[in-house]
Design a protein around this nucleic acid. Structure first.
Lengths: 336, 336
DNA sequence: CTGAAAGCGCTAACAT
DNA sequence: ATGTTAGCGCTTTCAG
């Protein structure tokens, strides 16, 4: 039934260890021998037993990926990230074990201690994430997506949200806009302390200052009704407003709809930039100029960092991905 | 560093095998002994080595989940399904390895032959899926989400899409509507032979016939523009139309928008029912009466079926989940 | 009800 | 450049 390494060795006329080394490349094998081993493997359809391997080498070649479930996270982004992690992991001959946030810290400890996985990727890290001490205590490397308050001894990677906020403002400033507003994530996102939301605010505010723009910040629930109310309020309280930065994919469309129903044309009367996945930005009725949320690139970087750590290479504690802005139909120069 | 079963055994004053049996329950252990073993496990923080276990027992306690990537599949549905599979698997003490469709048949063979997983769940099965013969040939059980043309020797589970189509029509018929249309998936979905799309058409058509309704079927691209064009065409070619069944989440909102802009009020002039996730239906501007796409339930059933197969229990070759319709704001009796 | 001991299939010293 | 062999940590006969 099952072909084992000794079967391959016998067929190739070599010892089991030679087969093992031919497979791993951990010591030089003559071309001739390698050829014979490879032939035997092919002919017998040999596939090393993962468990046996893990036991003997203390490497499972499996990464854990912890995905978030909570409200306010954008599902397609998570999915794209997960797919990217799987794809990247496979390029490094690793597989991916899927865990949900729900399992919590116990889940992390479980798969790490059982040697089920060699390393972990944790998404949606909070400023004071309870998993931080755990990750530090594990004997396996990990990478976090997102920045906690204190990342000492850990590795994290994320889009540079501060720079993204700045980029959006600078674009609007460059087009001549003088009064701008940030439509942010739902209030609870700020309350529970998600770093990226606050970083956007910092970048937005700092850049507005530098460019001497009048600016204001407005968290917004992820509902069309909330978007509508906010649009009305903005027009009432900031009549000179001509530029909006949106960091909340759920309200992007309803917000633009609301503005237009209130008599403002996008981009003629109002320019809009957003921080969101490119697909979202491009699929809207009015395609929106946006800074991409590079989930695929993030997944790739996370895996790459883990692979380095697994080989003992030192990696930077914090990795920030530079933001990229794509011009679309929602921005225009301010009318004189 | 690592606590092993012999450490626990020594501490508890028993043999390793007793610890093993206390953990697995595969043979009776006296209460007193079990207590001591459990105490030792807790005190030492013992966690069985997954690889060693897999090697000795030829059970990895890991399931493979293959998720689709292609266009036209609704991401949140896949995600919810995946989460449900992970959650259900954990209840049965199993973990989930995530594979992408991209890896194809080789990926399935790889994880199965390497004994990385005990069983497989394959999503998005096509009518003539190339993975069918492979799944039949593997020595590990599998469950497919969706129905192929020929499921002999395999196990599949899905929503009863035919009944779902019928249910939508019957609801409209019951409200007095006499002329109905089905707005379906994009043409390529039918072309590549996805069973569920065709089953909806079958159910829709059959039920319309039984209720003596005038009916027509219209595939639709997943873009707002296509939705708009289709709405115009429907009004032009079927002026007496008062009931629409939508099986295409992407165009649900734009379609209703288009109808309203063309002067039809929903539900006053036009009743709409849909087959889509409940969250989608409920979140729309006009909450839509819908048959739920029960991804969570599907995931649970898939895992349950696999667990049965793993214990050697026979399971039905095909499992159809009964559709459930939830009344919302998009349906009303036809005006006399 | 419990122990002793033989592997599970592979890797990685240790040999030569 | 290759072979020999001792485990890796656990489960599961086989014995009692």
């Amino acid at each position: 039934m099952m072909v084992k390494i000794t079967d391959v060795a016998r067929r190739a006329g070599v010892s089991p260890s030679t087969v093992s080394y031919a497979l791993s490349g951990k010591r030089p094998i003559s071309d001739e021998t390698k050829r014979r081993v490879e032939a035997a493997i092919r002919e017998l359809g040999y596939r090393p037993h993962a468990g046996a391997r893990a036991l003997a080498s203390s490497r499972s070649n499996v990464l854990a990926l912890v995905i978030p479930l909570r409200a306010g996270i954008h599902v397609p982004v998570v999915m794209q990230f997960a797919v990217s992690v799987v794809t990247s992991a496979r390029r490094h001959d690793h597989d991916v074990l899927l865990l949900t946030q729900e399992e919590g810290e116990d889940g992390l400890r479980r798969v790490a201690d059982a040697a089920l996985v060699d390393a972990l990727i944790v998404m949606d890290v909070q400023l004071r994430d309870p998993r931080l001490p755990l990750l530090r205590s594990l004997d396996r490397p990990s990478v976090m997506i997102g920045f906690p308050l204190e990342s000492e001894g850990l590795t994290c990677v994320d889009l540079d949200f501060k720079a993204a906020g700045e980029l959006c403002v600078e674009r609007l400033a460059g087009l001549g806009h003088r009064v701008v507003a940030l439509v942010g994530s739902p209030p609870e996102v700020y309350v529970r302390g998600t770093a990226f939301a606050q970083r956007v605010v910092q970048g937005f505010t700092a850049a507005a200052h530098r460019s001497a723009l009048a600016s204001s910040v407005h968290p917004c629930e992820a509902t069309p009704a909330a978007a509508r109310r906010l649009a009305e309020r903005l027009l009432r309280e900031h009549p000179a407003l001509t530029g909006v930065v949106v960091h909340n994919e759920a309200v992007l469309e309803p917000l633009i709809d609301a503005f237009e129903q209130l008599g403002l044309r996008v981009p003629a009367d109002l320019s809009v930039t957003a921080i969101c996945p490119d697909e979202t930005a491009a699929a809207l009725r009015v395609p929106v100029t946006s800074v991409a949320l590079p989930s695929a690139e993030l997944g790739e970087r996370a895996v790459e960092l883990l692979m380095q750590k697994l080989t003992g290479t030192a990696v930077p504690q914090e990795t920030l991905l530079a933001p990229h802005l794509t011009e679309r139909a929602s921005t225009a120069p301010r009318l004189a």
